[in-house]
Simulated scan of single mutants.
Amino acid sequence: MELTIEVYRRLIELLKNKGYTFCLYDEADHHEKTVILRHDVDFTLSKAVEMAEVEHELGVKSTYFILVTTDFYNIFSKRSYERLMKIISLGHEIGLHFDEKLYGIQTVDEMKKYVEMEADILGKYLNREVKVVSMH
């Protein structure tokens, strides 16, 4: 089965009909049957916006993990900024998608330093705290 937007829409509707609540990471303990919906945005912000719009239309929220260091999109371009703000305006959360291979990290302290640095950059850029991180 090919995962199209329509298939994705039906999957969300099925889970909602089965009594699942879609929530963000910090809300999971507040519901009995939860779905923490997340997306690692590796290649394109435009598709992320498309998915965010469908989720918003269906009344669910999710977390979009954004790479600060990627060759596929530039978060600092005007168009990318607008797309990220659109995702946020639809009620979704932005997290950091961290590519640890970029830095040649040797220790946990180094890892922490670079994760905090990228989360700080992304958070300041979007004017909101980045609370969740996904490893690439």
Rank of each mutant, 00 (worst) to 15 (best):
T63K: 06
T63C: 02
T63M: 02
T63I: 01
T63N: 05
T63E: 03
Y64M: 12
Y64W: 12
F65C: 06
F65Q: 02
F65R: 01
I66V: 14
I66A: 04
I66E: 04
I66H: 06
L67Q: 03
L67W: 04
L67I: 01
L67A: 10
V68K: 01
V68R: 04
V68M: 01
V68F: 02
V68P: 01
V68A: 03
V68S: 05
T69Y: 15
T69P: 11
T69C: 14
T69W: 13
T70G: 13
T70H: 13
D71F: 10
D71W: 07
D71M: 11
F72C: 15
F72M: 14
F72L: 15
F72R: 15
Y73D: 07
Y73V: 10
Y73I: 10
Y73P: 08
N74P: 03
N74F: 07
N74H: 13
N74Q: 14
I75E: 02
I75R: 04
I75L: 05
I75K: 01
F76C: 13
F76E: 15
F76T: 15
S77I: 06
S77K: 09
K78R: 10
K78A: 03
K78G: 02
K78H: 05
R79A: 14
R79C: 10
R79D: 15
R79L: 13
S80Q: 11
S80K: 10
Y81S: 11
Y81K: 15
Y81F: 12
Y81V: 11
Y81W: 10
Y81Q: 14
Y81G: 09
E82R: 11
E82Y: 07
E82M: 10
E82V: 00
E82C: 06
R83P: 01
R83G: 07
R83C: 08
R83W: 08
R83N: 13
R83H: 13
R83D: 12
L84V: 08
L84I: 07
L84W: 02
L84M: 13
M85E: 11
M85V: 07
M85T: 10
M85A: 00
M85H: 12
K86H: 00
K86D: 01
K86S: 03
K86C: 04
I87T: 01
I87D: 03
I88F: 08
I88H: 08
I88N: 07
I88Y: 07
I88G: 08
I88T: 10
S89V: 00
S89A: 10
S89R: 05
S89W: 00
S89G: 00
S89T: 00
S89Y: 00
L90Q: 04
L90S: 02
L90E: 05
L90T: 00
L90D: 05
G91Y: 07
G91Q: 09
G91W: 00
H92E: 03
H92Y: 01
H92R: 06
H92K: 08
H92P: 05
H92V: 00
E93I: 03
E93L: 03
E93Q: 12
E93H: 05
E93V: 02
E93Y: 05
I94G: 02
I94T: 01
I94N: 04
I94H: 04
G95K: 04
G95A: 06
G95S: 09
L96W: 09
L96D: 09
L96H: 11
H97C: 06
H97G: 05
H97V: 02
F98D: 06
F98R: 00
F98E: 04
